[in-house]
Design a protein around this nucleic acid. Structure first.
Lengths: 203, 203
DNA sequence: TAGATTGTTAATCGATTAACAATC
DNA sequence: TAGATTGTTAATCGATTAACAATC
């Protein structure tokens, strides 16, 4: 499935999805105008975004809420089960292992790795914590293509290289470091501190 | 300080900052071309972004690394101490309380709130956890203008309303819910699960 | 001076919005 | 039918890139 959706539109799909799911079961139809008003955006933009998911509405009535949810979920691949691993079972890593929110997108974090002997062998969030050394083997075994990176900064690039070598195709990087990876590997960064700093500078 | 920088440029400033700080102390000068190459972007864009911070380079030699760092830090307001509070001391909230990365942007999370009696009165990450009821008083007392929201979804809007009423001007929202807040309050969302799902859908 | 790099102005590109025809 | 809403095409807006003059 090659997507020609702009990434910025893609980023809005989960927002629509959350909103649509939050509506009362009784609401059968929803219009692009109503969605736009609720989310504070333009209604044409909403229709354009939704059109990418190949959902379609009916003039005069709007979209069938459940169909729209199904179309977005299908487009995002929520129905396809995907396996992820997590590296770095510190505070943030542990929190993410305990976070149940990935499931609704079809993503399961199946195991985690850390180099701290005190953590290796334990379970966090119901997932086994294995030794770093077992990473390549583990990724191969569970067929993970996604990885969450939450290690200390000085280890980030090394671990990233290992992940790539082990066959990981997408890395969600929480470390405030610019990772170098092959073009074929998608890296996206979340820098929580920077996000708060940017927010502060807007005040 | 009214900024007319595009938010997208603003978002790149911490990236430059991290990169510049990671360079060896011995590097006195750095060119926009070198920064661009390291971060995989266009060099004109780098110069434009840096120009917003009123830093300036010298033709032929580039920018003085330390000056550039200082200019970005000043532009982002890292020198100005800002107080933040956190609401919702669950897994993610606890992790953020223990995360030291906010300090480099001049942000200090001074206290946290939760409605779980078992948590109230404890310390997490060296910060006191107070009862939700003490939120308005606490925010007033410590003069916080920033808040991190990490509560369960069904509580998010209610807590947000309380934060706004208590004088919070910026909310970093980790809850996958579209918050309604006055125009004067800046809300930015981080949806970790959605970010990973988007990443997965790009593969 | 010659060459490298900055900073600015103009051109391009892509995303959003406006206008409007289609349709239920 | 009339009115509301979709979906598409054209216009606008903003961000990125290209071209180039300035300058050290």
């Amino acid at each position: 499935m090659t997507k020609d959706i702009p990434e910025i539109s893609l980023q809005r799909l989960p927002v629509y999805l959350n909103y649509l799911k939050s509506l009362p079961e009784g609401d059968k139809y929803i219009s692009s105008g109503a969605i736009a008003a609720a989310l504070g955006m333009g209604e044409v933009l909403v229709r354009k975004d939704l059109a990418y998911t190949s959902s379609s509405g009916r003039p005069k009535v709007g979209y069938v809420r459940t169909e729209l949810i199904a179309a977005i979920e299908e487009y995002l691949g929520c129905d396809k089960k995907k396996t992820a691993v997590l590296v770095g079972v510190g505070g943030l890593g542990s929190a993410l292992l305990g976070y149940g929110g990935f499931g609704k997108y079809g993503i399961d974090i199946v195991e985690a790795y850390d180099n701290d002997p005190a953590k290796v062998g334990t379970q966090v969030g119901g997932r086994p914590v294995l030794d770093d050394c077992a990473m390549a083997e583990g990724i191969g075994r569970c067929g993970a293509v996604l990885a969450i990176l939450a290690v200390p900064a000085q280890a980030a690039q090394t671990v990233c290289d290992q992940l790539v070598k082990a066959g990981i195709k997408g890395v969600l990087n929480f470390v405030p470091v610019q990772l170098k990876a092959p073009e074929s590997v998608v890296v996206r960064n979340i820098d929580v501190a920077a996000s708060l700093a940017i927010l502060a500078s807007l005040l």
